[in-house]
Amino acid sequence: MSTPVTLNDRFTLAAPPERVASLLRGDVAGVVGCIPGASVTADHGDGSYAATIGVHYGDTGVRFAGIARLLEPATDRVTVRAEGQDGIGTIKATGDIALELASDGAGGTAVALTATFAFSGVLAPLARSATKIVGPQLIRSFTKCLSSKVVGNANAV
């Protein structure tokens, strides 16, 4: 397993931490779907999900299929752990996406996102580099989508 790649981001969501936490835990498929190219394909009913994610770099890309599970969360922290491999076995990947939630003092939630990915296999160095390059873009899309979900959810309540 090569040295993990860690990506960080901070952003604010327009709903209090409890509501954000309950949205994240109650809609894992929706949250995973906020990552460009990712989707939940089956709910195993035990807190784990079959999921796929496609990551593109330039004009090529890799599709991973595997298991995503919500780790037993503290109230102020939600972590999704995913493990998978590409279709031809050249890369195995594991990733933790952790969201630390805190009140922003104005009725919203300050989120600190830490995503850590580790790769093994013959193409692990390339996967690692591509993640560093495209990761920030994926996170930007993810936070944008999550923000609109939280706003939609807040309006619905």
Partner: peptide
């Protein structure tokens, strides 16, 4: 002409 990679991966790679 090249296709933008499909984020849902119906194809494995973009084609030019």
């Amino acid at each position: 002409v090249v296709s933008q990679p499909d984020p849902r991966f119906t194809g494995r790679s973009a084609c030019g």
